[in-house]
């Protein structure tokens, strides 16, 4: 892992809470609660998680209706089918249709399907999104540049510690015959949160080496 993650100058003294992190971690390691390797492995796994995982599930669901039915029925089993560890909490996949759009929020904190999408973006954890997503969701979508048609119903799902959500966006038109790998490139993190549709294939441009 590089130091480029640090927004704190490398030669600045640690902040109080950075010291607390070091202190707590060292005490817990001294008590054999976990080892330095355990911490390193978790950090590496976290860095490796991204919305690409959720995108693979969506692409499979778009091409395989039976898989989609299983995914909607039990997302953990659907993920496990693709070799994706389902994580410790329930995940419900909410399907967008021509008449219903879904978006997710955690008004109380920052619950998020981290195994499928990686860590949540800063705005998902911020008060502005959390407070307003359940009060004026269409205005929030507009701020993301997403003008949802008035005749499409909008459902906002408020996550809890043990119950998380992921959105299954609509498959864009003009993608007939695309492979799963190509389709997955259209599925952005924001489309899995429900603050954007999947990418327009015209905007992306179809690349024959989509796996690259």
């Amino acid at each position: 892992m590089s130091d480029t993650h640090h927004d704190h100058p490398p030669d600045a003294p640690p902040t109080h809470y950075q010291r607390m992190e070091i202190a707590l971690r060292e005490i817990l390691m001294a008590k054999s609660v976990f080892t330095p390797d355990d911490v390193r492995r978790e950090v590496e796994a976290m860095e490796g998680r991204s919305a690409g995982t959720g995108a693979r599930l969506v692409a499979r669901a778009w091409v395989d209706p039976a898989f989609k039915a299983r995914l909607l029925d039990d997302a953990r089993l659907g993920a496990a089918e693709m070799g994706i560890p389902p994580g410790p909490y329930r995940v419900l996949v909410m399907e967008n249709t021509a008449t219903l759009h879904n978006m997710i929020v955690c008004t109380l904190c920052s619950c998020y399907p981290r195994v499928l999408l990686g860590l949540p973006p800063a705005w998902y954890k911020g008060t502005a999104y959390r407070s307003r997503a359940v009060r004026e969701p269409r205005a929030v979508l507009a701020e993301f540049g997403f003008a949802l048609a008035d005749d499409v119903a909008l459902r906002v799902h408020d996550s809890t510690a043990d119950m998380r959500y992921m959105v299954l966006p609509m498959r864009p038109a003009g993608t007939e015959g695309w492979s799963e790998e190509e389709l997955a490139r259209l599925v952005t993190r924001d489309s899995l949160i429900g603050v954007a549709p999947a990418l327009d294939p015209q905007a992306l441009g179809r690349a024959s080496d989509a796996a690259g």
Partner: peptide, 16 residues
Amino acid sequence: DVGGRPGPRVEKDEHP
């Protein structure tokens, strides 16, 4: 417990 409170515009900040 901020759900439903009025709030400012959502700034699309990404935080490494």
